[in-house]
Every structure is written in structure tokens, then in C-alpha cells.
Simulated assay, not measured.
Amino acid sequence: GWEILREAGVRVNVCPRSDSHYGIESGMFAIEAAQRHGINPGLSVDNETSYSTDMFMEMRVAFYLQRVMGMHKQHCCDSGHSLTTLPAAQLLKSATVDGATCAGLQDKVGSLTPGKQADLILINAADLNLYPNGNAFGTVVHATERSNIDTVMIGGRIVKQNGKVLGVDSERLRAAIDESREHLFAAAGYEPDIFAEKFLPLVQAS
């Protein structure tokens, strides 16, 4: 199946958190299988209503899941299996360049290249949780979180600066969100309890 996909030029996105979050099949994502067959998948987020849209977290989960899979094969299935991990630089490429390729936007975004759209983020490497740092890839993939993003530029236009989103009325936005949530809860007859212990049932794939 993977060979057919590769020969057809199919692009593949993997969602490291999704399958494990919902307990689908093995709960593992397919990045190793894709790479083994010559496909470089992009990283993406599958369901923003269930967990945050956070590509930094997606990269870290991908790293740890891949490490777990390697250790399992090494210790449980094949003692001669060498432990493989996903290098930080490769994970960052999956989250940027390969993700843009999956979306068919590789000529516009995904890398800082002359002629492409000026989409970029500036990370404050002086923040205490990132300081001191000795490797750019490792710092971005293994330590950075969204609060470290100082500036965001989309198409050459600055939309976040000094840690603040520009042009957004936060109070009005929060009021609209609260109103929408209250309407949905009322329509469903749901009484929210933020301290209730609720667990997502595991889904058995057929």
C-alpha cells in the first residue's frame, strides 16, 4: 500500500496526538512507515475541539512516540533492532516544509526562501525556559512553547508583536465565545462541571 502511495506521488500528513488521544488502532502515528517507503510526511493537528492547536507539542509528541516505538521493538520484539529517533531538525522540517508540501503550498510558504510569502515567527530565546540554549533545532522542537513567540508575520504583515496579537479586540472575542458556548450548552441541556472527572472512552477500530 505504501509503495502504491509513493509511486502515485501521494502526500501524507500524520497527526501524532490524534490516534493516541482517541485510542484508534495502535494509537501510534505512521511517520516511520511513511519514511521507510520514501515519503516525507508533514505534521498536522487533527481535532482542535479536543486538544490545542500547538505545533510545538505535536513535534514533541512525535519525538517521544517514535522513541517509545523504537524501544518497544528493541526490547520486546527484536533484541537486535537498533533504537531510532526523529532528529529535531527533521521534526521541524515535517512541521514546516513538509507540511506546506502536503497542502500544495510549497512554492508559497514553509521555508524562508526569496520569492516566497513572508510567513515567519520570532522566538524570544532569552526567555528563562529557553536560556541558555546551544542548538537552534533542539531549542525550537524540545523546549519552545507558544508563550515564547514574540512576533508573528503573515504575508509580510505583522499580526503579533511583543507577545501581543494585534488588531484583535480580546474582550469582544471572549464575550462572543462565552455567548456561543452558553447557547450550545443550553440547546443541548448540558450543565458544565469543570471539575468533573470524565474520560474519553477508547474507540475500537473495526
Rank of each mutant, 00 (worst) to 15 (best):
G1E: 04
E3D: 00
L5R: 02
R6A: 10
A8N: 08
A8E: 10
V10N: 06
V12G: 00
V14N: 00
C15V: 11
S18D: 02
D19Q: 12
E25T: 07
M28S: 12
F29K: 07
F29C: 12
F29A: 08
E32H: 06
Q35L: 12
R36V: 03
H37Q: 14
G38H: 02
G38L: 13
I39H: 14
G42E: 01
S44A: 14
N47C: 07
N47Q: 10
D54A: 01
M55Q: 00
F56R: 00
M59A: 05
V61S: 01
Y64F: 15
R67M: 01
V68I: 11
G70H: 09
C76S: 04
C77R: 03
S79K: 13
H81C: 14
H81E: 06
T84Y: 13
T85H: 02
A88W: 13
A89S: 15
Q90C: 05
L91D: 11
L91C: 07
S94M: 15
T96R: 13
V97Y: 15
G99N: 14
C102G: 02
Q106S: 08
D107A: 09
S111F: 06
L112R: 14
T113S: 04
P114F: 05
L122D: 00
L122K: 07
L122G: 09
I123S: 10
I123M: 07
N124K: 07
A126C: 01
D127V: 12
D127N: 13
D127G: 08
L128V: 11
L128S: 09
L130T: 03
Y131M: 07
Y131G: 08
P132N: 04
N133V: 04
N133R: 08
G134V: 05
N135F: 09
A136M: 11
V140S: 05
H142L: 10
E145Y: 11
E145Q: 15
E145V: 14
R146K: 09
R146D: 03
S147L: 08
N148F: 02
I149Q: 01
D150A: 09
D150R: 14
M153C: 07
M153T: 01
I154E: 02
G156M: 15
K160L: 03
Q161V: 09
G163P: 04
K164S: 05
V165K: 04
V165Q: 05
V165T: 02
L166H: 08
V168L: 04
S170M: 03
E171D: 06
R174T: 06
R174V: 05
R174G: 03
A175N: 10
A176E: 01
I177Y: 14
I177D: 00
D178L: 15
S180E: 12
S180M: 14
R181H: 04
H183P: 00
L184Q: 12
F185V: 11
F185D: 11
F185G: 02
A186R: 15
A186W: 15
A186S: 12
A186H: 04
A187P: 01
A188K: 15
A188S: 09
G189L: 04
G189T: 00
Y190K: 10
E191R: 06
D193T: 03
D193Q: 12
I194E: 06
E197A: 11
E197M: 04
K198H: 08
F199C: 12
L200D: 01
P201N: 09
P201C: 13
V203W: 13
Q204T: 05
Q204D: 10
A205I: 07
A205S: 14
A205K: 13
A205M: 06
S206C: 03
S206V: 11
